[in-house]
Design a protein around this nucleic acid. Structure first.
Lengths: 233, 233
DNA sequence: TCAATAGTGTCTGTTAGACAGTATTTA
DNA sequence: TAAATACTGTCTAACAGACACTATTGA
Protein backbone atom coordinates (compact mmCIF):
# COMPACT_ATOMS: atom_id res chain seq x y z
CA UNK A 1 0.00 0.00 0.00
CA UNK A 2 1.89 3.05 -1.17
CA UNK A 3 -0.45 5.79 0.02
CA UNK A 4 -2.20 6.47 3.27
CA UNK A 5 -5.80 5.60 2.59
CA UNK A 6 -7.54 2.70 4.18
CA UNK A 7 -11.16 1.74 4.24
CA UNK A 8 -12.75 2.09 7.69
CA UNK A 9 -14.02 -0.98 9.49
CA UNK A 10 -16.04 -1.54 12.61
CA UNK A 11 -14.60 -4.20 14.89
CA UNK A 12 -16.58 -6.31 17.30
CA UNK A 13 -15.56 -8.84 19.92
CA UNK A 14 -18.14 -11.62 20.04
CA UNK A 15 -18.29 -14.48 22.47
CA UNK A 16 -19.03 -18.16 22.28
CA UNK A 17 -19.75 -18.77 25.95
CA UNK A 18 -20.20 -22.42 26.79
CA UNK A 19 -21.30 -24.09 29.98
CA UNK A 20 -22.87 -27.36 31.07
CA UNK A 21 -26.45 -27.36 32.29
CA UNK A 22 -28.40 -30.50 32.99
CA UNK A 23 -25.86 -32.70 31.27
CA UNK A 24 -25.96 -30.69 28.05
CA UNK A 25 -23.41 -28.38 26.53
CA UNK A 26 -25.09 -24.98 26.34
CA UNK A 27 -24.24 -21.66 24.73
CA UNK A 28 -25.23 -18.21 25.93
CA UNK A 29 -27.27 -16.22 23.41
CA UNK A 30 -28.90 -12.81 23.56
CA UNK A 31 -32.00 -11.74 21.72
CA UNK A 32 -31.27 -8.67 19.67
CA UNK A 33 -33.30 -5.57 20.51
CA UNK A 34 -32.32 -3.49 17.46
CA UNK A 35 -32.06 -4.02 13.75
CA UNK A 36 -30.56 -5.74 11.93
CA UNK A 37 -31.92 -9.10 13.02
CA UNK A 38 -34.08 -7.48 15.73
CA UNK A 39 -35.76 -10.20 17.77
CA UNK A 40 -33.29 -12.75 16.53
CA UNK A 41 -30.89 -14.70 18.77
CA UNK A 42 -27.22 -13.92 18.47
CA UNK A 43 -23.90 -14.39 20.20
CA UNK A 44 -23.18 -11.83 22.91
CA UNK A 45 -20.61 -9.22 22.01
CA UNK A 46 -20.18 -5.68 20.92
CA UNK A 47 -18.04 -3.05 19.36
CA UNK A 48 -14.47 -2.63 20.47
CA UNK A 49 -13.85 0.76 22.05
CA UNK A 50 -11.65 3.37 20.52
CA UNK A 51 -8.79 2.86 22.96
CA UNK A 52 -9.60 -0.64 23.99
CA UNK A 53 -7.57 -3.79 23.40
CA UNK A 54 -9.65 -6.35 21.55
CA UNK A 55 -8.87 -8.97 24.21
CA UNK A 56 -9.92 -6.52 26.90
CA UNK A 57 -13.15 -5.86 25.01
CA UNK A 58 -13.89 -9.58 25.07
CA UNK A 59 -13.27 -9.75 28.81
CA UNK A 60 -15.48 -6.71 29.34
CA UNK A 61 -18.32 -8.17 27.29
CA UNK A 62 -17.97 -11.44 29.14
CA UNK A 63 -18.29 -9.79 32.48
CA UNK A 64 -21.18 -7.58 31.37
CA UNK A 65 -23.02 -10.59 30.07
CA UNK A 66 -22.29 -13.16 32.76
CA UNK A 67 -21.13 -11.13 35.75
CA UNK A 68 -18.22 -13.50 36.03
CA UNK A 69 -14.87 -12.40 37.33
CA UNK A 70 -11.93 -13.43 35.22
CA UNK A 71 -10.08 -16.43 36.58
CA UNK A 72 -13.21 -18.51 36.96
CA UNK A 73 -13.54 -18.61 33.21
CA UNK A 74 -11.31 -19.90 30.47
CA UNK A 75 -11.14 -17.29 27.72
CA UNK A 76 -9.22 -17.61 24.48
CA UNK A 77 -9.29 -16.20 21.00
CA UNK A 78 -11.21 -18.32 18.55
CA UNK A 79 -10.94 -16.80 15.07
CA UNK A 80 -11.77 -13.73 13.00
CA UNK A 81 -14.62 -13.31 10.59
CA UNK A 82 -14.33 -10.61 7.97
CA UNK A 83 -16.38 -11.40 4.91
CA UNK A 84 -17.97 -8.37 3.28
CA UNK A 85 -21.74 -8.28 3.68
CA UNK A 86 -21.83 -10.29 6.89
CA UNK A 87 -23.36 -7.26 8.54
CA UNK A 88 -25.87 -5.51 6.26
CA UNK A 89 -25.22 -2.11 7.81
CA UNK A 90 -21.53 -1.74 7.20
CA UNK A 91 -18.22 -3.44 7.00
CA UNK A 92 -17.58 -5.31 10.26
CA UNK A 93 -14.72 -7.54 11.28
CA UNK A 94 -15.55 -9.76 14.21
CA UNK A 95 -12.97 -11.28 16.49
CA UNK A 96 -14.61 -14.23 18.13
CA UNK A 97 -13.59 -15.54 21.55
CA UNK A 98 -14.30 -18.84 23.20
CA UNK A 99 -15.25 -18.77 26.88
CA UNK A 100 -15.75 -21.85 29.01
CA UNK A 101 -17.66 -21.14 32.19
CA UNK A 102 -18.99 -23.08 35.17
CA UNK A 103 -22.73 -23.38 35.53
CA UNK A 104 -24.16 -19.92 36.14
CA UNK A 105 -27.40 -18.42 37.39
CA UNK A 106 -29.82 -17.23 34.72
CA UNK A 107 -28.01 -14.60 32.70
CA UNK A 108 -28.92 -10.95 32.93
CA UNK A 109 -30.17 -9.18 29.85
CA UNK A 110 -27.74 -6.48 28.85
CA UNK A 111 -28.58 -2.96 27.78
CA UNK A 112 -28.94 -3.75 24.09
CA UNK A 113 -30.37 -7.22 24.53
CA UNK A 114 -34.07 -7.86 24.91
CA UNK A 115 -33.37 -11.19 26.51
CA UNK A 116 -30.56 -13.59 27.30
CA UNK A 117 -30.54 -17.32 27.94
CA UNK A 118 -28.71 -20.59 27.63
CA UNK A 119 -29.43 -22.92 24.72
CA UNK A 120 -28.30 -26.49 24.21
CA UNK A 121 -25.73 -26.32 21.43
CA UNK A 122 -27.04 -29.46 19.80
CA UNK A 123 -30.34 -27.74 19.17
CA UNK A 124 -28.62 -24.63 17.83
CA UNK A 125 -26.24 -26.47 15.55
CA UNK A 126 -29.07 -28.47 14.04
CA UNK A 127 -30.67 -25.32 12.61
CA UNK A 128 -28.30 -23.13 10.60
CA UNK A 129 -30.87 -20.37 10.19
CA UNK A 130 -31.54 -19.84 13.85
CA UNK A 131 -28.80 -17.32 14.63
CA UNK A 132 -28.24 -13.79 13.37
CA UNK A 133 -25.40 -12.88 11.00
CA UNK A 134 -22.90 -15.69 10.50
CA UNK A 135 -23.11 -16.63 14.15
CA UNK A 136 -24.07 -20.21 13.40
CA UNK A 137 -20.70 -20.69 11.79
CA UNK A 138 -18.88 -18.99 14.68
CA UNK A 139 -20.72 -21.08 17.24
CA UNK A 140 -19.91 -24.20 15.29
CA UNK A 141 -16.23 -23.32 15.21
CA UNK A 142 -16.28 -22.62 18.95
CA UNK A 143 -17.93 -25.90 19.83
CA UNK A 144 -15.44 -27.77 17.66
CA UNK A 145 -12.59 -26.08 19.46
CA UNK A 146 -14.06 -26.90 22.86
CA UNK A 147 -14.51 -30.55 21.91
CA UNK A 148 -10.87 -30.71 20.87
CA UNK A 149 -9.65 -29.80 24.34
CA UNK A 150 -11.40 -31.91 26.97
CA UNK A 151 -8.49 -31.20 29.34
CA UNK A 152 -10.20 -27.90 30.03
CA UNK A 153 -13.37 -29.55 31.27
CA UNK A 154 -12.32 -28.64 34.80
CA UNK A 155 -13.63 -25.11 34.22
CA UNK A 156 -17.14 -26.54 33.87
CA UNK A 157 -16.93 -27.92 37.38
CA UNK A 158 -17.37 -26.26 40.75
CA UNK A 159 -14.19 -25.00 42.44
CA UNK A 160 -14.02 -28.31 44.32
CA UNK A 161 -15.14 -31.35 42.42
CA UNK A 162 -14.94 -35.10 42.39
CA UNK A 163 -13.42 -37.24 39.66
CA UNK A 164 -16.90 -38.39 38.70
CA UNK A 165 -18.09 -34.82 38.23
CA UNK A 166 -15.10 -34.06 36.04
CA UNK A 167 -15.76 -37.21 34.06
CA UNK A 168 -19.37 -36.24 33.44
CA UNK A 169 -18.21 -32.84 32.21
CA UNK A 170 -15.81 -34.53 29.80
CA UNK A 171 -18.54 -36.87 28.61
CA UNK A 172 -20.82 -33.96 27.82
CA UNK A 173 -18.10 -32.03 25.99
CA UNK A 174 -16.96 -35.01 23.97
CA UNK A 175 -20.37 -36.56 23.51
CA UNK A 176 -19.04 -40.01 24.37
CA UNK A 177 -19.36 -42.17 27.47
CA UNK A 178 -16.11 -42.74 29.32
CA UNK A 179 -15.08 -45.69 31.42
CA UNK A 180 -15.19 -44.44 35.04
CA UNK A 181 -12.34 -46.65 36.22
CA UNK A 182 -9.91 -45.87 33.42
CA UNK A 183 -10.81 -42.21 33.60
CA UNK A 184 -10.11 -42.16 37.29
CA UNK A 185 -6.72 -43.75 36.88
CA UNK A 186 -5.75 -41.49 34.00
CA UNK A 187 -6.80 -38.22 35.55
CA UNK A 188 -5.41 -38.84 39.01
CA UNK A 189 -2.23 -40.30 37.58
CA UNK A 190 -1.31 -37.21 35.62
CA UNK A 191 1.11 -35.31 37.84
CA UNK A 192 0.18 -31.71 38.49
CA UNK A 193 -3.25 -31.85 36.93
CA UNK A 194 -5.48 -32.19 39.98
CA UNK A 195 -4.78 -30.99 43.49
CA UNK A 196 -6.48 -33.03 46.23
CA UNK A 197 -8.14 -30.88 48.87
CA UNK A 198 -7.91 -33.58 51.51
CA UNK A 199 -11.65 -33.50 52.08
CA UNK A 200 -14.35 -35.89 50.93
CA UNK A 201 -17.94 -35.67 49.85
CA UNK A 202 -20.88 -38.02 49.54
CA UNK A 203 -22.95 -35.68 47.39
CA UNK A 204 -22.83 -38.10 44.48
CA UNK A 205 -24.13 -40.97 46.67
CA UNK A 206 -22.30 -44.16 47.44
CA UNK A 207 -18.84 -44.28 48.86
CA UNK A 208 -17.39 -40.86 49.71
CA UNK A 209 -15.20 -39.38 46.99
CA UNK A 210 -12.12 -37.25 47.31
CA UNK A 211 -12.52 -33.61 46.35
CA UNK A 212 -10.04 -32.01 44.01
CA UNK A 213 -9.22 -28.53 42.90
CA UNK A 214 -7.79 -27.54 39.53
CA UNK A 215 -4.04 -27.59 39.92
CA UNK A 216 -2.20 -24.37 39.28
CA UNK A 217 0.90 -26.03 37.88
CA UNK A 218 2.04 -24.50 34.62
CA UNK A 219 0.18 -25.93 31.69
CA UNK A 220 3.17 -25.85 29.38
CA UNK A 221 4.76 -28.89 30.90
CA UNK A 222 1.79 -31.08 30.12
CA UNK A 223 1.14 -32.93 26.96
CA UNK A 224 -2.08 -31.76 25.44
CA UNK A 225 -3.59 -35.16 24.84
CA UNK A 226 -7.08 -35.87 25.96
CA UNK A 227 -8.79 -38.35 28.20
CA UNK A 228 -10.33 -40.45 25.48
CA UNK A 229 -11.29 -43.55 27.29
CA UNK A 230 -14.18 -44.08 24.97
CA UNK A 231 -15.55 -47.62 25.14
CA UNK A 232 -15.65 -47.76 21.36
CA UNK A 233 -18.86 -47.73 19.36
CA UNK B 1 -24.00 -0.72 22.50
CA UNK B 2 -27.32 1.00 22.27
CA UNK B 3 -26.58 3.62 19.62
CA UNK B 4 -25.04 3.45 16.20
CA UNK B 5 -21.61 4.87 16.70
CA UNK B 6 -18.51 2.81 16.36
CA UNK B 7 -14.90 3.83 16.32
CA UNK B 8 -13.28 3.30 12.91
CA UNK B 9 -10.45 0.81 12.57
CA UNK B 10 -8.03 -0.04 9.82
CA UNK B 11 -7.71 -3.77 9.21
CA UNK B 12 -4.65 -5.48 7.78
CA UNK B 13 -3.99 -9.04 6.76
CA UNK B 14 -0.39 -9.91 7.59
CA UNK B 15 1.44 -13.09 6.74
CA UNK B 16 3.83 -15.39 8.50
CA UNK B 17 5.22 -17.16 5.44
CA UNK B 18 7.50 -20.06 6.32
CA UNK B 19 9.66 -22.22 4.13
CA UNK B 20 12.74 -24.39 4.47
CA UNK B 21 16.00 -23.20 2.94
CA UNK B 22 19.32 -24.93 3.52
CA UNK B 23 17.94 -27.01 6.35
CA UNK B 24 16.65 -24.01 8.26
CA UNK B 25 13.12 -22.81 8.86
CA UNK B 26 12.91 -19.38 7.25
CA UNK B 27 10.35 -16.58 7.28
CA UNK B 28 9.69 -14.07 4.53
CA UNK B 29 10.17 -10.46 5.58
CA UNK B 30 9.95 -7.19 3.70
CA UNK B 31 11.88 -4.06 4.43
CA UNK B 32 9.53 -1.16 4.95
CA UNK B 33 9.86 1.74 2.53
CA UNK B 34 7.65 4.22 4.39
CA UNK B 35 7.18 5.35 7.93
CA UNK B 36 6.48 4.17 10.51
CA UNK B 37 9.44 1.83 10.92
CA UNK B 38 10.87 2.87 7.53
CA UNK B 39 13.90 0.72 6.74
CA UNK B 40 12.84 -1.84 9.31
CA UNK B 41 11.98 -5.46 8.52
CA UNK B 42 8.38 -6.53 8.90
CA UNK B 43 5.95 -9.27 8.00
CA UNK B 44 4.46 -8.93 4.54
CA UNK B 45 0.84 -7.85 4.47
CA UNK B 46 -1.39 -4.91 3.84
CA UNK B 47 -4.72 -3.28 4.29
CA UNK B 48 -7.87 -5.20 3.58
CA UNK B 49 -9.84 -3.70 0.72
CA UNK B 50 -13.21 -2.11 1.15
CA UNK B 51 -15.12 -4.99 -0.41
CA UNK B 52 -12.59 -7.69 0.18
CA UNK B 53 -12.89 -10.74 2.39
CA UNK B 54 -10.10 -10.81 4.94
CA UNK B 55 -9.16 -14.34 3.89
CA UNK B 56 -9.09 -13.22 0.26
CA UNK B 57 -6.87 -10.32 1.21
CA UNK B 58 -4.42 -12.75 2.77
CA UNK B 59 -4.39 -14.87 -0.39
CA UNK B 60 -3.87 -11.79 -2.50
CA UNK B 61 -0.98 -10.55 -0.40
CA UNK B 62 0.55 -14.01 -0.48
CA UNK B 63 0.45 -14.13 -4.23
CA UNK B 64 1.72 -10.58 -4.61
CA UNK B 65 4.60 -11.35 -2.32
CA UNK B 66 5.57 -14.83 -3.43
CA UNK B 67 4.00 -15.23 -6.85
CA UNK B 68 2.64 -18.56 -5.65
CA UNK B 69 -0.61 -19.93 -6.88
CA UNK B 70 -2.94 -21.19 -4.21
CA UNK B 71 -2.91 -24.93 -3.78
CA UNK B 72 0.87 -25.14 -3.57
CA UNK B 73 0.71 -23.35 -0.26
CA UNK B 74 -0.94 -24.15 3.02
CA UNK B 75 -2.73 -21.05 4.28
CA UNK B 76 -4.64 -20.74 7.53
CA UNK B 77 -5.71 -18.08 9.95
CA UNK B 78 -3.34 -17.63 12.83
CA UNK B 79 -4.74 -15.03 15.23
CA UNK B 80 -5.78 -11.40 15.56
CA UNK B 81 -3.82 -8.61 17.15
CA UNK B 82 -5.70 -5.54 18.24
CA UNK B 83 -3.94 -3.74 21.06
CA UNK B 84 -4.24 0.05 20.89
CA UNK B 85 -0.98 1.75 20.03
CA UNK B 86 0.50 -1.17 18.13
CA UNK B 87 0.57 1.09 15.07
CA UNK B 88 1.60 4.65 15.99
CA UNK B 89 -0.40 6.18 13.16
CA UNK B 90 -3.84 4.94 13.99
CA UNK B 91 -5.91 2.14 15.36
CA UNK B 92 -5.17 -1.04 13.42
CA UNK B 93 -6.45 -4.55 13.89
CA UNK B 94 -4.27 -7.15 12.21
CA UNK B 95 -5.49 -10.56 11.22
CA UNK B 96 -2.41 -12.74 10.92
CA UNK B 97 -2.24 -15.76 8.63
CA UNK B 98 0.19 -18.62 8.58
CA UNK B 99 1.44 -19.78 5.18
CA UNK B 100 3.65 -22.80 4.65
CA UNK B 101 5.36 -22.77 1.28
CA UNK B 102 7.84 -24.94 -0.61
CA UNK B 103 11.27 -23.50 -1.26
CA UNK B 104 10.90 -20.51 -3.57
CA UNK B 105 13.15 -18.39 -5.74
CA UNK B 106 14.31 -15.10 -4.24
CA UNK B 107 11.22 -13.09 -3.44
CA UNK B 108 10.25 -10.04 -5.42
CA UNK B 109 10.11 -6.71 -3.67
CA UNK B 110 6.53 -5.41 -3.69
CA UNK B 111 5.43 -1.91 -4.46
CA UNK B 112 5.65 -0.66 -0.90
CA UNK B 113 8.64 -2.77 0.12
CA UNK B 114 12.19 -1.60 -0.41
CA UNK B 115 13.42 -5.15 -0.21
CA UNK B 116 12.25 -8.67 0.55
CA UNK B 117 14.12 -11.75 1.68
CA UNK B 118 14.06 -14.94 3.69
CA UNK B 119 15.46 -15.00 7.21
CA UNK B 120 16.15 -17.99 9.44
CA UNK B 121 13.48 -17.86 12.13
CA UNK B 122 15.94 -18.82 14.83
CA UNK B 123 17.88 -15.65 14.18
CA UNK B 124 14.71 -13.55 14.18
CA UNK B 125 13.25 -15.04 17.32
CA UNK B 126 16.49 -14.48 19.20
CA UNK B 127 16.15 -10.71 18.83
CA UNK B 128 12.78 -9.30 19.89
CA UNK B 129 13.62 -5.79 18.66
CA UNK B 130 14.40 -6.76 15.12
CA UNK B 131 10.92 -6.54 13.62
CA UNK B 132 8.56 -3.62 13.21
CA UNK B 133 5.35 -3.23 15.22
CA UNK B 134 4.50 -6.31 17.27
CA UNK B 135 5.59 -8.58 14.46
CA UNK B 136 8.06 -10.45 16.62
CA UNK B 137 5.19 -11.71 18.68
CA UNK B 138 3.15 -12.63 15.60
CA UNK B 139 6.08 -14.47 14.05
CA UNK B 140 6.65 -16.29 17.29
CA UNK B 141 3.02 -17.39 17.41
CA UNK B 142 3.21 -18.55 13.80
CA UNK B 143 6.33 -20.61 14.31
CA UNK B 144 4.82 -22.21 17.39
CA UNK B 145 1.74 -23.16 15.39
CA UNK B 146 3.85 -24.62 12.58
CA UNK B 147 5.89 -26.69 15.03
CA UNK B 148 2.69 -28.09 16.46
CA UNK B 149 1.61 -29.58 13.13
CA UNK B 150 4.49 -31.49 11.55
CA UNK B 151 1.92 -33.45 9.50
CA UNK B 152 1.92 -30.46 7.19
CA UNK B 153 5.62 -30.71 6.45
CA UNK B 154 4.72 -32.13 3.03
CA UNK B 155 4.08 -28.60 1.79
CA UNK B 156 7.74 -27.80 2.34
CA UNK B 157 8.70 -30.52 -0.13
CA UNK B 158 8.72 -30.56 -3.90
CA UNK B 159 5.60 -31.96 -5.58
CA UNK B 160 7.29 -35.36 -5.72
CA UNK B 161 9.48 -36.21 -2.79
CA UNK B 162 11.13 -39.10 -1.03
CA UNK B 163 10.48 -40.22 2.52
CA UNK B 164 13.93 -38.94 3.49
CA UNK B 165 13.15 -35.49 2.14
CA UNK B 166 9.91 -35.39 4.08
CA UNK B 167 11.74 -36.54 7.17
CA UNK B 168 14.33 -33.79 6.86
CA UNK B 169 11.52 -31.23 6.52
CA UNK B 170 9.95 -32.59 9.71
CA UNK B 171 13.27 -32.47 11.50
CA UNK B 172 13.74 -28.83 10.58
CA UNK B 173 10.22 -27.89 11.65
CA UNK B 174 10.39 -29.74 14.93
CA UNK B 175 14.02 -29.02 15.64
CA UNK B 176 14.66 -32.64 16.61
CA UNK B 177 16.39 -35.48 14.80
CA UNK B 178 14.11 -38.34 13.83
CA UNK B 179 14.91 -42.00 13.46
CA UNK B 180 14.88 -42.66 9.68
CA UNK B 181 13.60 -46.22 10.00
CA UNK B 182 10.78 -45.56 12.40
CA UNK B 183 9.81 -42.46 10.48
CA UNK B 184 9.68 -44.45 7.27
CA UNK B 185 7.45 -47.10 8.77
CA UNK B 186 5.15 -44.60 10.39
CA UNK B 187 4.68 -42.33 7.42
CA UNK B 188 4.24 -45.04 4.80
CA UNK B 189 2.03 -47.04 7.12
CA UNK B 190 -0.52 -44.28 7.54
CA UNK B 191 -3.25 -45.04 5.03
CA UNK B 192 -4.11 -42.20 2.67
CA UNK B 193 -1.27 -39.93 3.71
CA UNK B 194 1.22 -40.46 0.91
CA UNK B 195 0.51 -41.48 -2.68
CA UNK B 196 3.33 -43.41 -4.35
CA UNK B 197 4.05 -42.18 -7.86
CA UNK B 198 5.53 -45.49 -8.94
CA UNK B 199 8.81 -43.88 -9.93
CA UNK B 200 12.14 -43.84 -8.17
CA UNK B 201 15.01 -41.41 -7.75
CA UNK B 202 18.63 -41.59 -6.71
CA UNK B 203 18.99 -37.87 -6.13
CA UNK B 204 19.66 -38.41 -2.44
CA UNK B 205 22.48 -40.89 -3.22
CA UNK B 206 22.59 -44.52 -2.22
CA UNK B 207 19.83 -46.95 -3.03
CA UNK B 208 17.04 -45.51 -5.18
CA UNK B 209 14.07 -44.26 -3.19
CA UNK B 210 10.39 -44.30 -4.07
CA UNK B 211 8.85 -40.95 -4.92
CA UNK B 212 5.62 -39.91 -3.28
CA UNK B 213 3.06 -37.22 -3.78
CA UNK B 214 0.92 -35.64 -1.09
CA UNK B 215 -2.26 -37.67 -0.97
CA UNK B 216 -5.50 -35.86 -1.64
CA UNK B 217 -7.55 -37.96 0.73
CA UNK B 218 -9.71 -35.88 3.04
CA UNK B 219 -7.81 -34.75 6.09
CA UNK B 220 -10.73 -35.15 8.40
CA UNK B 221 -10.39 -38.89 8.60
CA UNK B 222 -6.89 -38.70 9.95
CA UNK B 223 -5.84 -38.34 13.49
CA UNK B 224 -3.82 -35.21 13.93
CA UNK B 225 -0.95 -36.75 15.79
CA UNK B 226 2.57 -36.09 14.75
CA UNK B 227 5.53 -38.11 13.67
CA UNK B 228 7.55 -37.72 16.82
CA UNK B 229 10.09 -40.45 16.52
CA UNK B 230 12.64 -38.38 18.29
CA UNK B 231 15.59 -40.49 19.47
CA UNK B 232 15.50 -38.59 22.72
CA UNK B 233 18.14 -36.09 23.85
C1' DT C 1 35.39 -53.63 -2.76
C1' DC C 2 33.29 -49.62 0.41
C1' DA C 3 30.15 -45.95 1.52
C1' DA C 4 25.72 -44.32 1.46
C1' DT C 5 20.97 -44.54 1.59
C1' DA C 6 16.33 -47.39 1.26
C1' DG C 7 13.55 -50.30 3.34
C1' DT C 8 12.10 -54.43 6.67
C1' DG C 9 12.01 -57.08 10.90
C1' DT C 10 12.15 -57.55 15.75
C1' DC C 11 12.38 -56.49 20.43
C1' DT C 12 10.94 -53.77 24.64
C1' DG C 13 8.64 -50.61 27.54
C1' DT C 14 4.51 -47.80 27.83
C1' DT C 15 -0.11 -46.98 27.29
C1' DA C 16 -5.21 -47.33 26.19
C1' DG C 17 -8.98 -49.72 27.09
C1' DA C 18 -11.66 -53.69 28.91
C1' DC C 19 -13.19 -55.44 33.01
C1' DA C 20 -12.75 -58.16 37.77
C1' DG C 21 -12.70 -57.20 42.23
C1' DT C 22 -12.55 -54.60 46.80
C1' DA C 23 -13.99 -50.49 49.82
C1' DT C 24 -17.29 -47.43 51.94
C1' DT C 25 -21.24 -45.02 52.15
C1' DT C 26 -26.98 -44.58 52.33
C1' DA C 27 -31.44 -46.83 52.36
C1' DT D 1 -28.95 -56.74 53.70
C1' DA D 2 -28.91 -54.34 48.75
C1' DA D 3 -27.69 -50.62 45.85
C1' DA D 4 -24.71 -47.19 44.58
C1' DT D 5 -20.50 -45.16 43.88
C1' DA D 6 -15.14 -44.87 44.76
C1' DC D 7 -11.10 -46.80 43.87
C1' DT D 8 -7.35 -50.55 42.68
C1' DG D 9 -5.48 -54.33 40.09
C1' DT D 10 -4.77 -57.00 36.01
C1' DC D 11 -4.88 -58.43 31.40
C1' DT D 12 -4.30 -57.56 26.30
C1' DA D 13 -3.57 -55.35 22.08
C1' DA D 14 -1.48 -51.49 20.02
C1' DC D 15 2.07 -48.44 19.62
C1' DA D 16 6.48 -45.76 20.12
C1' DG D 17 11.07 -46.01 19.96
C1' DA D 18 15.59 -48.46 19.70
C1' DC D 19 18.28 -50.90 16.70
C1' DA D 20 19.90 -55.24 13.75
C1' DC D 21 19.62 -56.52 9.33
C1' DT D 22 19.11 -56.84 4.18
C1' DA D 23 18.80 -54.38 -0.48
C1' DT D 24 20.46 -51.47 -4.13
C1' DT D 25 22.77 -47.90 -5.93
C1' DG D 26 27.48 -44.98 -7.10
C1' DA D 27 32.44 -44.54 -6.64
Amino acid sequence: MSHTEYPPFAVTADLVVLTIREDALCALLVRRAADPFAGCWALPGGFVGEDEDTDAAARRELEEETGLADGTVHLEQLASYGAPGRDPRMRVVTIAYLALAPDLPAPTAGSDAADARWWPVEELLADPGRLAFDHHRILSDGVARARAMPENATVFCRPEFTVAELRRACEVVMGTPLDPRNFHRKVTGRPGFLAPTGTMTTRDGGRPARLYRRSLVSRSSQSSDDFSTAPVR
